[in-house]
């Protein structure tokens, strides 16, 4: 057993224990770790994301180019988003807060607009293409299993899709199908739960390995 002499390992280990202490109850150690974590996260965000990835390459550098050559086409493109960004800062003053609604409306509208064709492609067309019972490719060896799988997918999709049908009360035949749909959903959730819990357990093992092996030197 050889306890680590690296101060950073000690810092990481003690912060890990401080975060885990929340499992018992809220306490000053957890509060310290939480506030440190949030502070570091905000500091990182401000410097590495806002400053290094946005302000310098997307605002400062193009403005510098424009200052030297005012009609540089590519750099001129930053002007509309820059105006929208400045309007966003209007929130600082209550008198000019209304200005921030324009960039917000733009971002939300653009987000929804861009998402619609993408949703059609990935969430609708790709799914339907995969659900339709198709002729198996030549590489498939057991054709009957292929068709059975396809039929199962079609039935499950039908039941689940009808579960999300809102225009009619789920009674009678529709009610029975939607109950089946709910069961299929729960089966899927169960599988996803198990799969993710396994991944989380491996994270826990990693952390325990760090505490026992790297920090305390227990092999």
């Amino acid at each position: 057993m050889a306890i680590s002499h690296d101060p950073w390992v000690w810092a990481a280990a003690l912060l890990t224990l401080a975060i885990y202490s929340f499992l018992y109850k809220d306490n000053p150690f957890y509060k310290f770790a939480e506030h440190l974590y949030i502070g570091v996260s905000v500091g990182y965000f401000l410097y590495f994301i806002i400053w290094q990835q946005i302000v310098v390459p997307l605002i400062y550098d193009p403005l510098k180019v424009l200052f030297i050559s005012p009609f540089h086409t590519k750099e001129l493109l930053i002007i509309p988003p820059l105006i929208l960004s400045i309007m966003m800062l209007g929130r600082i003053s209550p008198r000019h807060a209304w200005m921030s609604r324009w960039p917000m409306a733009y971002v939300m509208g653009m987000g929804a607009g861009l998402a619609i064709p993408a949703y059609f492609q990935t969430n609708i067309f790709k799914q339907i293409e995969g659900t339709i019972i198709s002729i198996p490719p030549a590489t498939i060896e057991i054709v009957s299993t292929y068709y059975l799988n396809k039929l199962l997918v079609l039935i499950i999709v039908t039941c689940v899709l009808l579960f999300f049908y809102f225009s009619r009360e789920h009674k009678g035949a529709l009610g029975r199908i939607t109950i089946l749909g709910r069961w299929f959903l729960m089966l899927g959730f169960g599988a996803a739960f198990g799969y993710t819990v396994m991944a989380r357990v491996s994270l826990l093992i990693g952390r325990l390995d760090f505490l026992l092996h790297t920090w305390l030197g227990i092999h």
Binding site: I124, I128, E129, I132, I133, S134, I135, L154, V157, T158
Partner: peptide
């Protein structure tokens, strides 16, 4: 949703009857 469900069933029937995946091309992106 109903239109898509009908298309899915219709597509499956057409594919099985014609023994060809040609119908699937309308969903290809």
């Amino acid at each position: 949703k109903m239109i898509l469900l009908i298309l899915t069933y219709l597509g499956s029937i057409i594919v099985l009857l014609t023994k060809s995946n040609l119908f699937l091309t309308i969903f290809k992106v």
